[in-house]
């Protein structure tokens, strides 16, 4: 029986462990991807993902929009990851509980991901290849070699390509 996300949150709050496991199957991979996309190594990413689940456990009954818990988890992971990456972070810390998920996290939903991948394929070069290489986590040096670009230009080119992708997606969403 397929249960929607809000049902799973309510069931987990009521003591249903299988609902929790299903939430984990549904959202764990995207939380991992957000932590890694923020630049965390595997150990820190694992820690941040676990922290987001701990926070959810504590707020299962008070979360504002249970249907949007995927965005809530992604936002929690991103904020925690950015806090962890700060050079001046204290030895002991706690990020604030997310009130409203970042609207941008919606791109992680399945429909959003498929649209994104299609949109990458529609980009001109070097953006298409560059973003495909970014997706498989190829380092800047190898990406530069593959594309025949100077290494120093990879960062700015990536930013420009993401901006193009953003524009393309916004146009497609407006046209829907």
């Amino acid at each position: 029986m397929h249960r929607d996300t809000a049902e799973l949150v309510h069931a987990a709050a009521g003591g249903d462990r299988s609902a929790w496991d299903e939430l984990e199957s549904r959202f764990g991979p995207l939380m991992w991807a957000v932590a890694r996309a923020c630049g965390l190594g595997p150990a820190d990413a694992a820690d941040v993902v676990q922290g987001a689940w701990l926070r959810l456990l504590q707020h299962l009954e008070s979360i504002k929009d249970p249907a949007a818990v995927g965005g809530w988890l992604a936002t929690t992971v991103r904020r925690e990851a950015l806090l962890l990456l700060r050079k001046d972070r204290p030895r002991v810390y706690s990020s604030e509980v997310v009130e409203d998920p970042d609207p941008a996290a919606a791109v992680l939903e399945t429909d959003g991901r498929q649209l994104l991948w299609k949109s990458v394929s529609a980009l001109h070069e070097p953006c298409r290849t560059l973003l495909q290489l970014v997706a498989i986590d190829l380092g800047s040096r190898q990406t530069a070699m593959r594309l025949g670009l100077p290494m120093g230009s990879i960062g700015p080119t990536r930013a420009r390509c993401l901006e193009r992708l953003r524009t393309l997606i916004s146009a497609q969403e407006t046209a829907r």
Binding site: R78, A104, Q114, L131, A135, L162
Partner: peptide, 10 residues
């Protein structure tokens, strides 16, 4: 980060 995460997932 969300964009990059979505690309990584895909």
């Amino acid at each position: 980060e969300y964009f990059l995460a979505a690309l990584r997932l895909a």
